[in-house]
């Protein structure tokens, strides 16, 4: 795949925290409109990888290329971050701002949009994800599922080229998971390029174009979901999936 064709390309990405090497040479190409799910045990490096792509963590070695432009050592991280949206496991909404203000803050302060323009766009997005009536609420008045949907809308309001979702349903009560996953599914259908770290295997199976199994800081195996989930080549992948099945998550 040429660099121009890839929305995101990672080459030999390494990241250490002190003596602990969390990422040990990750290579990954993500095409435009592709949905890639990262699966793997806790501590396998999924979250760290996403944070590195967003430059929230600086990598120790390797390259990160976004739409043909190397961003590994980007001088202005803010210009990169406005192109790459990220949603975290814990919702991280700003508790002192209404939903609308949460969503419009970055478009206004980073993109310099007028209040009217930012609010009109935000309202349209909130409406699209069934949150229009929550516009003027503060985050602590919303359910976990609603909060996470607002967090997704907040990232979308920056019109990112790429969305990174870091276990966005892990902190939710089971009955609230579905509403968030359906939002992500809708984004996938709309053609959003996404890299999703998840423990929701059935979601990964249904939505992902490609599934990558991370093990000890490396992508051990990747392929279409039907292949990974039914006939994994690697023993480690099989063990992981067996444990997931035993836990009733697939």
């Amino acid at each position: 795949m040429s660099e121009e064709a890839a929305a995101l390309r990672l080459e030999g990405v390494r990241k250490s925290f002190g003596p602990v090497e969390v990422l040990r040479g990750v290579d990954l190409d993500v095409s435009e409109h592709e949905v890639v799910c990262l699966i793997g045990a806790s501590g396998s490096g999924k979250s760290t990888l996403l944070r590195c792509i967003n430059l929230l963590e600086r990598i120790n070695a390797g390259r990160i290329v976004l739409h043909g432009e190397e961003i590994t050592h980007a001088k202005n991280v803010n210009t990169v971050r406005r192109r790459v949206g990220i949603v975290f496991q814990a919702f991280n909404l700003f508790p002192h701002m209404t939903v609308l203000r949460n969503v419009t803050l970055a478009p206004r302060e980073v993109l310099g949009k007028s209040r009217a323009e930012a609010e009109a766009e935000a309202t349209a997005l909130l409406d699209r994800f069934g949150l229009a009536d929550r516009r003027d609420e503060y985050p602590d008045r919303l359910s976990g599922g609603q909060q996470q949907r607002v967090a997704i809308v907040r990232a979308l309001a920056m019109r990112p080229e790429l969305m990174l979702l870091d276990e966005v349903t892990s902190a939710l009560d089971p009955e609230l998971v579905a509403e968030v996953l359906s939002v992500i599914r809708e984004l996938a259908e709309a053609g959003m390029t996404m890299v999703i770290a998840t423990h929701e295997m059935s979601f990964a199976r249904d939505t992902a174009d490609r599934v990558c199994f991370l093990d000890a800081g490396k992508i051990l195996e990747q392929g279409p979901p039907e292949e990974i989930f039914t006939q994994p080549r690697e023993e480690r992948t099989r063990q992981f999936l067996d444990r997931v099945i035993a836990a009733g998550r697939l």
């Binding site: 929230l56 803010n78 949206g85 975290f88 803050l105 967090a151």
Partner: peptide
């Protein structure tokens, strides 16, 4: 710290993160 991460991930600079996200919560 996740509040700062959330703000920075949206592309807000550090001064703006302080001004709009951190300090208003801290002062309260």
């Amino acid at each position: 710290p996740s509040q700062e991460a959330a703000a920075r991930s949206l592309g807000l600079s550090r001064p703006k993160t302080l001004r709009f996200v951190i300090i208003p919560q801290a002062v309260r």
